[in-house]
Amino acid sequence: MQEAIYETWRHVFKLDPERELSDEALDAICLSGTDALLVGGSTGVTYDNTVDLLSRIRRYEVPCALEVSSEEAAVPGFDHYFIPMVLNTERAEWIIGRQIEALRKWGTFIPWEETTAEGYIILNPRAQAAQATQASCELDDDQFAAHLYMADRLMRLPIVYMEYSGMFGDMERVRRARHLLTGARLFYGGGIDTAEKAQLAAQYAHTVVVGNALYDERLSAALSTVQAVRNTVLIK
């Protein structure tokens, strides 16, 4: 079986189509040595701003994937597509509802070999994604483990995404998650704005995602995370 495009990614920059990014900043990001760019956002993502960002990225050779958070933002031309499913919410629309509606309309047109489901566990209650999906972020250890078992062993999702967007997460919980997973790849995102934090996350997560730091006048610090992750060995 051919290896999935994301299985070798250690470092990823996440770009939000709604947020402004200068040509100079995008040039630095695309030439940074990151393994891939992930395009997506919790709010304000449209077809037009996604197409615009993709057209700017395509001047570079870096792999580029789209996280499809709404039907309107389903733009062709990306190297891969991720379909997020928020596991720690009671609102079914964020688990299968919106996905089913999109499949009803576009199922025959989806490039299935380049499409992957992500099981999101959102752990920062102040994050936009948590508020939009009404995620239950205050999970105790048993509840957290149960969500991992659901994603990895029952649903057999290829990716579990621990999302702390807006804050640096609990690295002990990231470590525990990695060791509870048997098949899924662990993505971690949230609060990584220094090389040191990137190294801590990269010890335990298969893939480290850096996003907000690119927009908060911390571009140089965000760029430093690429080499920091590359220099960090994943702890077994």
Rank of each mutant, 00 (worst) to 15 (best):
P158E: 03
P158C: 07
P158F: 04
P158T: 07
P158N: 05
P158G: 06
I159H: 04
I159M: 06
V160R: 02
V160D: 03
V160Y: 10
V160Q: 10
Y161E: 05
Y161F: 13
M162R: 03
M162V: 10
M162W: 09
M162D: 02
M162Y: 12
M162C: 14
M162E: 08
E163G: 03
E163H: 08
E163T: 05
E163F: 12
Y164I: 00
Y164V: 00
Y164G: 01
S165K: 01
S165Y: 02
S165F: 04
S165C: 03
S165D: 10
G166P: 07
G166S: 07
M167E: 12
M167I: 14
M167V: 13
M167N: 05
F168M: 11
G169E: 04
G169T: 11
G169R: 02
G169K: 04
G169H: 04
G169N: 07
D170P: 11
D170H: 12
D170A: 13
M171K: 08
M171E: 07
M171G: 05
E172C: 10
E172H: 14
E172W: 11
E172R: 14
E172I: 13
R173F: 08
R173I: 04
R173A: 12
R173N: 10
R173K: 15
V174L: 14
V174Y: 00
V174S: 05
V174Q: 00
V174K: 03
R175P: 10
R175M: 14
R175V: 09
R175C: 14
R175K: 15
R176Q: 13
R176A: 12
R176N: 09
R176G: 00
A177G: 04
A177Q: 09
R178F: 10
R178C: 08
R178N: 14
R178D: 09
R178V: 07
R178S: 15
R178A: 14
H179M: 12
H179G: 10
H179A: 11
H179L: 08
L180C: 11
L180S: 11
L180I: 12
L180V: 08
L180K: 10
L180Q: 13
L181G: 04
T182D: 12
G183P: 01
G183L: 13
A184N: 02
A184D: 05
A184W: 05
A184E: 03
A184Y: 01
A184P: 05
A184H: 06
R185D: 10
R185L: 11
L186F: 01
L186W: 01
F187C: 05
F187L: 09
F187M: 07
Y188P: 06
Y188V: 04
Y188Q: 05
G189P: 09
G190N: 05
G190S: 11
G190K: 07
